[in-house]
């Protein structure tokens, strides 16, 4: 059974396929929310909310790209979340390090709090070094992404992580294809610069 048949069956009252959809796309949506917000705890909430919204309005679903539709909901929720955060004073923090390597936002940064809380939740560290290293990769990518403006970040995520075409991204984000291209180009250059500066990449 393909997705269209799932949706058709759901709209005819067969709810069991909703669970299949959730299980199929949970990880994808979680990954997007994590890199978009820079925090796993918030990502769990936003992922859950994404699926709850989808379930609430599933009768009206007429799209052809289910994953794109779910990512659109997630994107809007993340946007609202980040706007709310900045309204509360927890603006998006870029953990840009100073040229000498010292972290400029060392003590007050939201990001460090998030990271520390993540570590706290995972304590005691029962995993071996590999887990720590893997987490470090993700955290550092999140860190680098957090330095980008929200729109550029989501465009890069759609483009590189979900292999979406410019046209698809334009449809989801509601901007023109040329704007998407520009965001990808500028975001890529900026991200590359951050990563080089942060010693993510070998020169």
């Amino acid at each position: 059974m393909d997705e269209r048949q799932w949706i058709y069956a759901i709209q005819k009252g067969n709810k069991q396929y909703l669970q299949d959809i959730v299980e199929k796309y949970y990880d994808d949506i979680f990954r997007f929310c994590t890199f978009q917000t820079g925090n796993r705890e918030d990502a769990y909430d936003l992922t859950q909310e994404t699926f709850l919204r989808f379930i609430r309005y599933v009768e009206g679903y007429r799209d052809r790209n289910l994953k794109g539709y779910l990512l659109t909901i997630a994107m809007n929720l993340c946007r609202n979340f980040l706007t709310e955060q900045s309204r509360r004073g927890k603006r998006e923090v870029c953990f840009d390090r100073k040229p000498d390597g010292e972290n400029s936002a060392e003590s007050d940064s939201l990001w460090d709090i998030y990271r520390a809380e993540d570590m706290l939740l995972d304590e005691p560290v029962e995993s071996p070094e590999a887990r720590l290293l893997e987490r470090d990769v993700h955290d550092r990518l999140m860190e680098a992404l957090s330095c980008l403006p929200q729109m550029q970040r989501e465009t890069l995520l759609f483009h590189y992580m979900y292999d979406m075409k410019y046209r698809e991204i334009a449809k989801i984000t509601g901007v023109s294809v040329s704007t998407v291209k520009s965001r990808v180009k500028q975001g890529t250059e900026k991200l590359r610069g951050i990563m080089k500066r942060e010693d993510f990449l070998d020169e």
Binding site: D27, E134, H138, Y160, M161
Partner: peptide, 9 residues
């Protein structure tokens, strides 16, 4: 980006 895809909940 490949590494990023390994991120699991």
């Amino acid at each position: 980006w490949k590494e990023a895809l390994d991120l699991k909940p």
